[in-house]
Nucleic acid binder design. Structure first.
Lengths: 292, 292
DNA sequence: TCCACCCTCTGACTTTAGTCAGAGAATCGG
DNA sequence: CCGATTCTCTGACTAAAGTCAGAGGGTGGA
């Protein structure tokens, strides 16, 4: 049974990784401090970002930083731009401690591989990779988002930038058919954004036309997480939304350089169709019926 | 790099499993209490065993049990056989709570699979299985052990019992060539025992003969963990020990029904040889040179 | 300039986890 | 039956983790 296997996995892994984590890391220092030390990184990091990434209470984090400062591992100084924000930086000692943590993490990893034969090692590493990838994939959340929000804007800009890089002709969005913020807000349309750890990693939009097929726009997935099925999920969610808003079909146009996207559309049942608009950057037009 | 992959795995998994563990379990009750509640099980369990399995301080465990008793989830009563020992049993409420925990663990597992496509799910489950298996394998420890210790005796008895079941003729160890406790203690010989979480899961022994090949005896691996390479590890360790004690070769006899063992010997470079003793239960004799 | 809001910090808590030293019953071996 | 040992429990701690309220500077828009 699938659930059984997952539970067995959870048990074995938390036991193994958890136990070793404690054995190797956080020996001299409480684990909380180590996590902060690690997260600050060699470049330094402002306190606000630390709090967000580690999900710590501001009072608690402040205290942890105070301890690290006391130990001479960290300096906290006001940011230059906004003097409410403070930036934590590692001292030379702090950098050294962090490297020690790094080395210990390596040891930990090695200790998991050591007792195995070369062949088992290869298989374990491959399986771990697979698990990492797929668990990451399962952490991605897809939701309807106001296109004016920062995460949405980030995706749209990344999308345009990528088109600019990939199209033979470059890309000037003022020449292309529009899909502005208003057009991507209900009832005119909507924007889906995929996030991973609250960071935007993909998007896809729909323009709704009463009685006409819905138009699919702005499909983009961050290069960092391609191959995890996020594009497929966005597409399926968009189709669900289209149906929910009364569309009987979806259609879209795309550029010949976007080969993964074209493959995705075909795999999801989209049929190549004659041009239904005059998008100057398009080479292919697709359509899919959404009738049950 | 292998170590990189393992570290990425550790990071992703502790984040994912750890975060969800806390979200789903231990909501009403501290996690320590939940672990105890779970470990007691529907049958009840004596306090000593709980302490060993959860590796808890006796005072601490006692307090946890007191809290659970206070909440009406657990009854602790003296054992009938030995009245120093006390047995913890779940009350009706306790059983219900434990089932709730169980259901939550299932939900947790489901929430990991849910966002994935059927194909990704299959791959994730397969990879998790592989990781569970191989991490379990890497937790197995092999060490020289006094054959009189309980773990050693457990293995030897399990070994005899299995021979009894598998040999066409049954097995009476008084008719077989001996390898008693004294013969498996240095300098006459030695016994290796493999343990997983301090429980014996396999063994293998060596009888040393000055100037003659060492004799390999008592190779056994618990059915629960076959296929994890523990047999191979035992065999390799035995060969190392044989070399360390001056043997230039190892030899062994075996019964035709022990097909996995025979395959293992062949795979590890053992050559079938003429009978070097009159073991009544043997059909095959193997030998391997240990010269560098 | 004023006011609302941000960001970080301190002080004053609570809860969880865990350790250590015995006390007090029960058992076992001789 | 005695003494050593085993098992569990209580009391008295400590450390880590985390929460909450509010103080006190800083910023940015009306």
């Amino acid at each position: 049974m699938e659930v059984e296997a997952v539970r067995r996995f959870n048990r074995v892994v938390t036991q193994r990784v958890g136990a070793l984590d404690e054995a190797y890391l956080g020996r001299d220092r409480p684990l909380g401090q180590d996590r902060v030390l690690w997260e600050i990184g060699p470049e330094g990091c402002d306190v606000r970002a630390l709090r967000a990434r580690l999900e710590l209470d501001s009072g608690y984090l402040s205290r942890l930083l105070r301890s690290l400062e006391g130990a001479g591992l960290v300096r906290v100084e006001p940011s230059v731009g906004d003097r409410r924000v403070r930036i934590a930086r590692l001292t030379a000692d702090g950098v050294a401690e962090r490297e020690l943590l790094d080395a210990r993490s390596d040891q930990l990893a090695t200790s998991m591989l050591d007792p195995l034969s070369a062949r088992q090692r290869d298989r374990l590493v491959a399986a771990m990779d697979e698990v990492s990838r797929l668990l990451t994939a399962s952490l991605v959340q897809v939701e309807v988002m106001d296109p004016r929000r920062a995460e949405a804007q980030y995706c749209l800009e990344a999308y345009f930038a990528e088109l600019g890089r990939r199209f033979d002709t470059g890309f000037d969005h003022t020449r292309s058919i529009s899909a502005g913020n208003a057009e991507l807000t209900l009832p005119a349309g909507l924007l889906l954004v995929a996030t991973l750890h609250a960071e935007p990693v993909g998007c896809g939009a729909l323009k709704l036309h009463d009685g006409e097929p819905a138009e699919l726009k702005r499909m983009w997935v961050s290069p960092d997480i391609r191959g995890l099925g996020v594009g497929r999920r966005l597409l399926q969610e968009l189709e669900r939304e289209a149906v929910a808003h009364g569309a009987l079909a979806v259609r879209l146009e795309t550029n010949r350089t976007l080969t993964e996207a074209i493959a995705l559309y075909r795999a999801q049942g989209y049929q190549e169709a004659p041009a239904f608009n005059a998008e100057p950057y398009a080479h292919h037009w697709f359509e899919k019926s959404l009738k049950a």
